[in-house]
Amino acid sequence: MKKTILTLIIFSTLVSAHDMWIDTNNSVHYGHKQSTHAHGDNRVLSQEKMLSIECLENGKTTTLYKEHKCSATFFILKPVYYTKTPYGVKEKPKNETKMPISSLLSLESIKRINSNSGLKSFNKGLELTLRNKPSEIEIGDKARLIVLFDGKPKSGVRVANAERTIGVSDEDGHVNVRIKQKGLQNIKASFEKAGDTIVCDKLVYETTLNFEVNE
């Protein structure tokens, strides 16, 4: 019984309960960046988890290599199915799982903007980018964001900063976040849409934007 409850909790929070962030060495961390949820289970995601890893360099998008000095990096994780069953959550499509209760397809990505020239979109899936220059953002200022889907503005996407939902994107995909702490910013955007109910019941899109704010 206890295991079942725990499984249900894990399933319901699977997509949004964790943080991802990119460090200065272009390693993607997975865990709980916010100290209030620190469980000691932070880890670095391996490249096998990634669908694509791209670098924005001199205004052009290329595959990321170690020697690149990227103005922005963008990691798209491989899509993962999560299907809830009476005996746990399985990472398989609904139609390949015994006794499925419900199922989702998680589509995640994460971007880090390193400089003012890294504001260009990668035009792939759900993506957050800045409309104002990161070097000019100070504590108390607003990060003026745009939510894009395949490079086009997307409205109605929930945006959260430091675990607090602060609003949804408007008709132009715009949403503003006030910066309240220095250091690496971790802003998330997410939305859901219905699946075909055969392979999965819903698709959950989530993306994270990182950039540094100095004092």
Binding site: G167, V175, N176, R178
Partner: peptide
């Protein structure tokens, strides 16, 4: 007032409400 005077927009984030 948000970097200048403007009419209320259709959508505001909680941070905009400050």
């Amino acid at each position: 007032y948000d970097d200048g005077l403007m009419l209320n927009p259709k959508t505001e984030s909680l941070d905009d409400m400050e």
